[in-house]
Design a protein around this nucleic acid. Structure first.
Lengths: 118, 118
DNA sequence: TCTCAATATGCTTCATATCGCATATATTAT
DNA sequence: ATAATATATGCGATATGAAGCATATTGAGA
């Protein structure tokens, strides 16, 4: 139980959870919305999975993540309350806007450019 | 915001928060209910205070802690949801029972015995 | 003022977490 | 089989956090 709270005690993981509360996403989408390197997303998402907060499944070459459908009613309600807390943050709002803009493809840079958000 | 979640990511601090959701308590009551040394309670409670989750005030020689009355409506609701999650834990239930039994005074041991719960 | 109870804090040690980077794995397409 | 994309993972370095113990602070009372 404390493990789940610990998983939720990291800014980037909070962001990821908030995004997944919006809709399921693959790793490359998350990295582009948050503008962070791939290994960070993979690792943080692994912590959330380990805590039983999210679930993943594979579709071809990429992997999707979503809020675990096996969460108890109590946890679902708690996440819903936390969502309202998180949404009072400017940073969270900004990231949600980026998500809704379908994440326009990055031009250059050192980051890998994926094609999953067709 | 992540600081508050971080403050809530520690088992003992979750316990303390749950106790304070029941009623305000002084440090010596908390240490006897949880059966932990004084310095631990002081330190953990300091983290909660630093995160703005609790407030303290002095009454003579002892110091009382309570859930901060300045929390936003969102945070209040979130704590209430978390409370329901926490209450599904056997450990939490056991501690709550100990609290309701007015914390019978410890006989001996290395711990300081306080008199605050007259 | 001296003592004691209640609480806080400084310091060291040990464990855990995160970052950054490189590399490994898996899947699809050629 | 080879190449390329998407994702995961192992490792070293650094940072953060908690435990334990000793000590400091504060207030009440003799």
């Amino acid at each position: 139980m404390a493990d789940r709270h610990k998983a939720l005690s990291e800014p980037m993981r909070i962001m990821i959870m908030r995004l997944l509360l919006e809709r399921e996403l693959c790793v490359c989408e998350i990295m582009r919305v948050l503008e962070v390197p791939q290994y960070k997303v993979s690792k943080h998402v692994a912590v959330l999975k380990q805590a039983g907060l999210v679930r993943d499944w594979r579709e071809g070459t990429w992997i999707h993540y979503e809020i675990s459908p096996e969460l108890s009613a109590e946890w679902r309600a708690a996440l819903d309350s936390m969502k309202k807390v998180w949404d009072t943050s400017r940073d969270v709002q900004a990231v949600l806007r980026r998500l809704r803009r379908s994440v326009p493809r990055e031009s250059g840079g050192a980051m890998i450019v994926c094609e999953c958000a067709k």
